[in-house]
Amino acid sequence: MTRLLDVENLTLDFDTDEGRITAVDDVSFSLEAGEIMGLVGESGSGKSVTAKALMKLNASNAIYGQNTKISLNLADGPVDIMSLRTAQELQIVRGGAISMIFQEPMASFAPAITIGAQMVEQLLIHTSMSALKAQEVSIEMLNRVGISDASTRFKQYAFELSGGMRQRAMIAMALSTNPKLLIADEPTTALDVTIQAQVIDLMKDLVKDFGMGIVFITHDLGVIAQTADTVAVMYLGRVVEKGPVRQVIGNPSHPYTQGLIKALPRLDDLDSPLTPIPGDIPSPLERPNGCVFNTRCSQFLGSQCSGEIPKFTPISHDHMVACHIYQQDQKGT
């Protein structure tokens, strides 16, 4: 496999009225072509901001850290995302080499233009297709994501579709340009499981057929288990555990990951009570020192956890966790 994406030391602050907040704090990961990486974590953990950073798509109050390096390796050489400045430069990645499926489907469609016209326009910008061919491809993609009556839907406006249909139309639009990297932000959250299964299959096909890489953001660990090759778990802007999906889900090692898995409603045991992770995620204005999870951790070790940022420790090959419990083990104490 070839390395498609390298993210090193991604740090991103936002300037807000209430002060500067850190949304992403020293995050590194990489993705091979033909691989699906899951990004999980609760809301506000920085998943969407991380995803948008890959296209430099964050709002104007975003401040990237000086050591942030994002490199996208395309056939004709690597692209240094952070160095892209002009709209023209950015267009190479936005909607071209990288497509994004947004969490809010309404945001992707202009209200006054039909779904079809937008899909065709996108194809005309980023490919050399004729308008007729672009229309054909668009309708075919709508079909593939399970939209019935695609040629009718093609002529409709976003507000005329139900939420789930809109989501699928957006997926179709994002996939139609055949991007190298697809960022999917909660793409199946609003869909029912039978359609979700179709969309997941579709994504896997694309990975297989075109060697596309996918960053798949979701808070559904079941979806991750069924889709992703690797997974990174985020909490308050930091990655706390990462590795092959089998190992992270089969042997969750960070107390936060363990809590997430325990909180899932399980079908094989309807009688057990649901176990939430106690407490609320702190506001980004009140980010804890040391381990960001220390205000909610049931295995809190004291001053270490509240004073020192835990470093990544390997649990097994490629399976890394950032928690003092394991750093102690390594020191042999």
């Binding site: 009556d149 499981v193 299964a197 179709q198 997941i200 079941g222 288990a225 889900i249 089969g250 079908l267």
Partner: peptide, 24 residues
């Protein structure tokens, strides 16, 4: 079909889902 399509936490439980073909 709905019940069989619930994504399982077990990555090896793949393909148990009854795949629905066809359109709404």
């Amino acid at each position: 079909a709905l019940l069989s399509a619930i994504p399982s936490l077990d990555p090896d439980a793949k393909n148990l889902a009854q795949k629905l073909e066809g359109e709404i």
